[in-house]
Design a protein around this nucleic acid. Structure first.
Lengths: 349, 349
DNA sequence: CTGTTAGCGCTTTCAA
DNA sequence: TTGAAAGCGCTAACAG
C-alpha cells in the first residue's frame, strides 16, 4: 500500500478541477485568485467544480510559486499575559481579512543566543514579515537579526527612536495627562504619583504627563508626592506606604500601572483609609486585575487590539508593496479612561 | 528591472550550495536534513558552503515536496489571558525542538459561522495538525470541521469523553482533593466551598474532589457550606456572603478559582474577619491575581505549559507516524498546591 | 555513500 | 479571454 499522502491534503489538485470544469489549470488558478479577466460563465463553471470536488488549494505550492508565505511572525517574550492574548486577538482578526496567518515565536532565549536562534527560527518559519512586541521591540540583537534576514517588520511600543522602521505605540504622555486631569477635575489637589520601572520609556512618559498636567493646573509636585515603583505589586506597597506616611497626605494616588494601584488600595486599608472616600486610587493598563480590586479600579485602557490591527495593517500594506508613497513611520494611538469605583471627589475636610 | 524576489528569500538555493561544495543538490538536501548516511568529510564541506553562501532553505519548497508544512494550528477562543500565553510558551518551546511552528487561529466567531470559517481558515493555514484549547475543545462544530479536514488534533481539557481523539488535561478531582486535605490537615473542619460554573466539567470534578476528601475525613458537607459561583469575581462576592452569613460560619473557604477566592478575601473584611487568622481562603488556577491579593493566595497551580508540551508532543509523534502502537488517548497531568499566605491553622476558639 | 530523474501543486510568462 | 510551457526550490525513489 502506498504511503498515504499527508492527511491535510484533500488530494484533489487544481488539475482535477480544471478537467472537471473543462478548462485549463491556469484558468482555475485565475478564478481562485479573483483575477478579473475571467469570463463570468467560465468563472462560475470553475466555482462549481471546486465545490463539487471539495477542492482546497495547497498553500505550500502557492507560496513556492509566489515567493510569499502569507505568514507573519510575532516575536514576543513574556509581557503581561493579558497583553499577548489581547494583541493576538486584534492581529489574528486583521490577518484574516487579507488571508494572512500569525506564527508565534518566543524570544525569551534571544539574549543568550545573541540573535542566532532568532535568525534560524525565523527563516524556518518562512514568514513574510514580523511584528515585534515589547520588550523584544527594544532588543537590539533581535532587531538586528530580523534586519539581516531582510524581513520587513513593525515594532510595538519601542522605547527610543533609534531607527526608522515603522512602530506602533500608545500615547503614554497624553493618557497620563488626561488621567491626572480626571483627578484634578474631581477636586483633588494633593495627588501622589507612583512611578514605573525606570528602565522603560513609558514610565518616563507617564510621569511627564502627570507632571505637566499638575503644572498646567497650577499644582505643585514635591518630592514627597512622588514615589518610585517598579511596576510590581510589592513595590506598589512600599511606594504607597511612603506616600501615605508623609505629612501632607495625598487625597489621590495615581499609580503607573494596575498592579501598583491594586497595592495602593490594599495599603490604604492598613492606614484605615476608605477608597475612594478618603483616598482615590487610579491605575494604568486596565489589566484583568482592575476588575478584581475592591472597589473596582479606575484606570487607563490601552487599545492593544487596535495596535495589533494597525501593526498588521502596516505590515501587509508594506508586503503588498502598493504604497509607493513614503510610509508614515510612527503611530501613537490614544487610550481611554475607564472610570470605575476607585476614584471620587475628595471628602470636604 | 525584474520584480525583486520576496525579501525573505536569501536568493541562494540548494543548487548553488551544491555547486559551491562540488556535490549534488541531493547530497546537500541530505546534510540539511541530518540524514546519517552522508560521509563526514562531505558533510562538513557542504556545511561550509552553506555558511559561506549564507544559505537559507526555502520552507515552502520543502513543505511542498514533503507534503508537510511543519505548522501546527492552535485553535483558541478567549480563555483567561494568562492561560493562552502560558500555553503558548510551552507549545512554542516544544515545537522548536522538532522544527515545528505554531499558527494561531481565533475561533470566537465559530459559533455563528458553524465551522465553515474554521474550515476555510484552517485549510489556508496549511497546518499539519491542530491543538484545541478550551472552551473550543468542547465546541462540536469546530471539532467536526477539523475532522472533516482530516487533520489530526489534540484537545486540551475537554469536558466529556464523547470522542476518542487524544486529549490532555489536568486532574481536577485529585487537585481539589489534595487542596481540601491541605485545609483539613491544618485543622479545619468547617470548610465552605464555592462551586464553579455548572456548564464546565471541571466545576463538577473540583466539587467531587472536595466532597470526597471531606467524606474521607469524616467531615460533613451540608447545604449551608456550599455556595454556587460562576467563576467570576462578582459571583464570588455573593457566594462568600452566603457562606459567611450562616450560623455555622466556616473557618476556611475553598473557592473553585482564584477570582472567586480574591472575592472571598475581599468579602472577609466586610465581616471583620482577618485572613488567614479568622478565615483561611484558598483558590484554584494560580492566575496572576493570586499574587496580587492580600494576603497572597494559597492556590492550585495548573501545569499549563507542561500540558502544552505534552499536547504538541503527542501531535508531533502522531504526525511522524512512528508510533504504531495504539496511542494513549487521554493524559491527566497533576497539579501542585502553592502555599502562600491566605491559609493557616484555624484560631483555637 | 552519492547522483539522477521526476515530480510536489501552483503560478509566471508568453503566445494564441 | 484562455492555454501551453517552464519553472519556483526542494525531496522521494531508485540506481549505481
Amino acid at each position: 500500500m502506498a504511503k498515504t499522502r499527508a492527511r491535510w491534503q484533500s488530494g484533489t489538485t487544481i488539475k482535477d478541477v480544471a478537467t472537471h470544469a473543462g478548462v485549463s489549470p491556469m484558468t482555475v488558478s485565475r478564478v481562485l485568485n479573483n483575477e478579473p479577466v475571467v469570463k463570468p460563465a467560465t468563472r462560475s463553471r470553475v466555482m462549481e467544480a471546486v465545490k463539487e470536488l471539495n477542492y482546497r488549494p495547497n498553500f505550500s505550492a502557492r507560496s513556492l510559486a509566489k515567493a510569499r508565505s502569507f505568514f507573519i511572525g510575532l516575536l514576543y517574550d513574556n509581557p503581561s499575559a493579558g497583553y499577548v492574548s489581547e494583541f493576538l486577538d486584534g492581529a489574528v482578526r486583521r490577518c484574516r481579512a487579507d488571508r494572512y496567518h500569525m506564527v508565534l515565536e518566543n524570544c525569551s532565549e534571544a539574549d543568550e543566543e545573541g540573535g542566532d536562534l532568532i535568525t534560524e527560527t525565523l527563516s524556518q518559519a518562512n514568514v513574510d514579515g514580523v511584528i515585534i512586541l515589547p520588550p523584544v521591540s527594544n532588543n537590539p540583537s533581535v532587531i538586528q537579526a530580523v534586519e539581516n534576514l531582510g524581513l520587513p517588520y513593525v515594532r510595538i511600543a519601542p522605547d527610543g527612536e533609534e531607527n526608522d522602521a515603522p512602530a506602533v505605540g500608545i500615547n503614554d504622555y497624553e493618557a497620563a495627562y488626561q488621567m491626572t486631569r480626571h483627578l484634578i477635575d474631581l477636586g483633588h489637589s494633593q495627588i501622589g504619583f507612583i512611578k514605573g520601572h525606570p528602565n522603560q520609556g513609558s514610565s518616563h512618559e507617564r510621569y511627564r504627563g502627570f507632571a505637566d498636567a499638575m503644572a498646567a493646573a497650577g499644582l505643585t509636585v514635591d518630592r514627597a508626592s512622588v514615589a518610585q515603583g517598579y511596576f510590581d505589586f510589592r513595590s506598589g506597597i512600599e511606594a504607597t506606604e511612603a506616600l501615605l506616611s508623609g505629612d501632607n497626605r495625598p487625597t489621590a494616588i495615581f499609580a503607573s500601572n494596575d498592579d501598583m494601584a491594586a497595592a495602593a488600595i490594599t495599603m490604604a486599608r492598613k492606614f484605615d483609609l476608605e477608597v475612594p472616600e478618603d483616598l482615590s486610587v487610579v491605575g494604568f493598563d486596565d489589566t484583568p486585575i482592575a476588575g478584581t480590586t475592591w472597589p473596582a479600579l479606575t484606570t487607563v485602557r490601552q487599545p492593544i487590539a487596535e495596535m495589533a490591527e494597525a501593526a498588521v495593517g502596516v505590515l501587509i500594506r508594506d508586503l503588498k508593496g502598493d504604497s509607493d508613497a513614503p510610509v508614515q513611520k510612527r503611530w501613537l494611538l490614544d487610550c481611554t479612561i475607564v472610570e470605575r469605583d476607585s476614584s471620587a471627589k475628595p471628602k470636604p475636610s
